[in-house]
Simulated assay, not measured.
Amino acid sequence: MPLYMDFHKIDSDAITEEDMYRAHLRDVAVQNKHGLIYKRYYLNLHHKTAFCLMESPNKEACVESHKEAHGVGACNVIEVSHQNEFIPYMGEGSQNEQDLALTLSGEIDSGFRTIMLVDFLELMEIKALMATKISDSIKNYQGNVVKVPSERFMASFVDASDAVACSIEIAKYFETLKGKMIFSIALSTGKPVDEHSTDLFEETKTKVEVMSRLGFQLGISMDLDTKISAFRSKDISKIDTTGITVFDQSSYIEIEKLDKVLLKNLNNSAFNSDTLGSQLGLSKTQAYRKISSLFGMPPNKLLSELRLIHAVRALKKRDKTVSEVAYDSGFNSPTYFTRVFRNRFDVLPTLISKSKFN
């Protein structure tokens, strides 16, 4: 049968593990009637959340089962792929005799995970070596590699402090490489199922995508939930986190809005820093201050950097000319594009388009 996972927000302030076990027993008591099997449940008393994992013929059976057992359905229910989603993100944990989910270390599994997205641009043909190093670092810090395309790695960690330490190790490795190497590592911590999600860790994956796209000048960035979780789970004081940019919720909302505007206009050569400010609802001065405070660079520099990153990826596909890539990346002159590209990467764009990247 298909695999489903649901989300429950616990209203009571005095809920205990024993209370949740009794609630689980009510679910189990009616499971045969609805043709489903409750496998285990994940509990986070700090965040007052619970997530049930079950095999069911359909979503409707999950909803009706909970309604019969508790008088109300779950906040949300999603179908998950066992091999492509559940195992990569949630791992191979088990459960105790009460079906409460446990991590591999035997602790209660909250269901929350820290998702790390590593994005990089390498202008040298050493991708295979880099992939091995990144994968080894993730595994050494008890992370699960999630399959993603191209020059990116996504990983899931039970412990946020492991994710932070892993990101620092990978960043240090990138910094040892010779040549023009730029990277972005984003970390976000969240629930497997959200109120309105349709995919596992949908909200958390969206966050790392946004932070990663805009984070090439930051190196490592993470949301405030990851910082809080990392310091709560272990003594992280021995890890130097001074170079990591932390976005609180209000800052993330600002960069998410910026990301949407840039994705829509990046290839438009008429789009400039003045236009960017107006579409953000900010004056030129406000946009300058806001973007500089978030990314350490003015709007025009950020826009140029993102266009160059877009151009590098397009050139490596080798299906367009340098002139076509220049225009598609928002530059109104191939000559100007070539000059800016060479100043940034110390190599001509024609050499990138002719290289054999695997």
Rank of each mutant, 00 (worst) to 15 (best):
V193R: 00
T350S: 11
G111H: 04
I255M: 02
R318S: 15
T206Q: 15
S293I: 03
R232D: 08
N44T: 02
R232G: 05
S150G: 05
S292N: 14
L218E: 08
C75P: 01
T176D: 02
F174N: 03
I15Y: 02
I309E: 14
I115S: 08
M90Q: 10
A270C: 11
R232M: 15
K354Q: 14
L224K: 12
H34L: 12
R313F: 12
H8S: 02
P334K: 08
S188V: 07
K238G: 15
F216S: 05
L25E: 08
V312A: 12
Q83E: 13
C62F: 02
S110Q: 03
P88W: 02
M116R: 02
L351N: 14
L263Y: 07
T198E: 15
L53N: 01
A14D: 09
D109I: 01
Q83R: 14
A314L: 15
F231C: 10
V63P: 03
H66I: 01
A101L: 04
E151R: 06
L306Q: 08
H66W: 02
A311Y: 03
S137I: 07
K9I: 01
G281F: 01
T350G: 09
L177T: 06
V30F: 08
S94A: 12
D346C: 12
T49Q: 06
I138P: 06
P2C: 06
E18G: 07
S355Q: 07
K290H: 11
Y38R: 00
I291K: 04
R307D: 11
D240Q: 04
I228Y: 06
Y173M: 14
M1Q: 10
A131H: 12
G71T: 05
F153T: 04
S56Y: 02
P299L: 03
Y41R: 04
L262C: 05
T198F: 12
G243I: 04
F337E: 04
N96C: 11
S94H: 09
L302T: 02
R339N: 13
Q249N: 13
S353R: 13
M54V: 03
K133E: 13
L258C: 10
Y38N: 00
T16M: 00
V28A: 05
L218K: 10
H47Y: 10
S323N: 13
E125T: 14
A69Y: 00
V118R: 00
K238D: 12
M90N: 11
T226G: 08
K234R: 14
S323E: 14
V164I: 10
E203V: 13
G296E: 03
L224F: 14
